[in-house]
Simulated scan of single mutants.
Amino acid sequence: MSSGTSELAWFKSSYSGSQGDSCVEIAIAEQVIHVRDSKDVTRPAFAVGREGWSQFVRFASER
């Protein structure tokens, strides 16, 4: 993972609760979507290509 993830604009889903629930944050970059644990942002993030992210969101939306 590149060291440049700290400069990204991270956000959580509007469906996330404010009680400190388990959640992920994402940051949208030109080529990839970065994903990290919102409770421990010091852990490494991972990145997924835009097409893979789109497929994941479609799958999750169907559930």
Results as ranks from 00 to 15, higher is better:
residue 1 M to D: 12
residue 1 M to S: 11
residue 2 S to N: 12
residue 3 S to K: 08
residue 3 S to E: 15
residue 3 S to W: 02
residue 5 T to S: 10
residue 5 T to H: 12
residue 6 S to R: 09
residue 6 S to N: 15
residue 6 S to C: 08
residue 6 S to Y: 12
residue 7 E to M: 11
residue 7 E to T: 14
residue 10 W to R: 09
residue 13 S to L: 13
residue 14 S to Y: 10
residue 14 S to R: 15
residue 14 S to Q: 15
residue 15 Y to D: 13
residue 15 Y to R: 13
residue 15 Y to W: 09
residue 15 Y to C: 05
residue 16 S to I: 09
residue 17 G to Y: 11
residue 17 G to E: 12
residue 18 S to A: 15
residue 20 G to Y: 10
residue 21 D to G: 13
residue 22 S to N: 14
residue 23 C to L: 06
residue 23 C to S: 02
residue 26 I to T: 06
residue 27 A to K: 05
residue 29 A to M: 08
residue 30 E to P: 07
residue 30 E to I: 05
residue 30 E to R: 05
residue 31 Q to V: 08
residue 31 Q to C: 02
residue 32 V to G: 00
residue 32 V to S: 04
residue 33 I to P: 04
residue 35 V to Y: 05
residue 35 V to N: 00
residue 36 R to L: 04
residue 36 R to D: 03
residue 38 S to C: 02
residue 39 K to I: 01
residue 39 K to N: 02
residue 39 K to Y: 03
residue 40 D to C: 01
residue 40 D to A: 01
residue 40 D to W: 00
residue 40 D to K: 03
residue 43 R to P: 00
residue 43 R to T: 11
residue 44 P to T: 04
residue 46 F to K: 00
residue 48 V to D: 00
residue 48 V to N: 01
residue 49 G to D: 07
residue 50 R to D: 00
residue 51 E to Q: 05
residue 53 W to S: 08
residue 54 S to P: 00
residue 55 Q to P: 01
residue 55 Q to E: 13
residue 55 Q to D: 10
residue 56 F to M: 05
residue 57 V to F: 07
residue 58 R to P: 01
residue 59 F to P: 03
residue 59 F to W: 14
residue 60 A to K: 05
residue 61 S to W: 07
residue 61 S to Q: 12
residue 61 S to V: 13
residue 62 E to K: 13
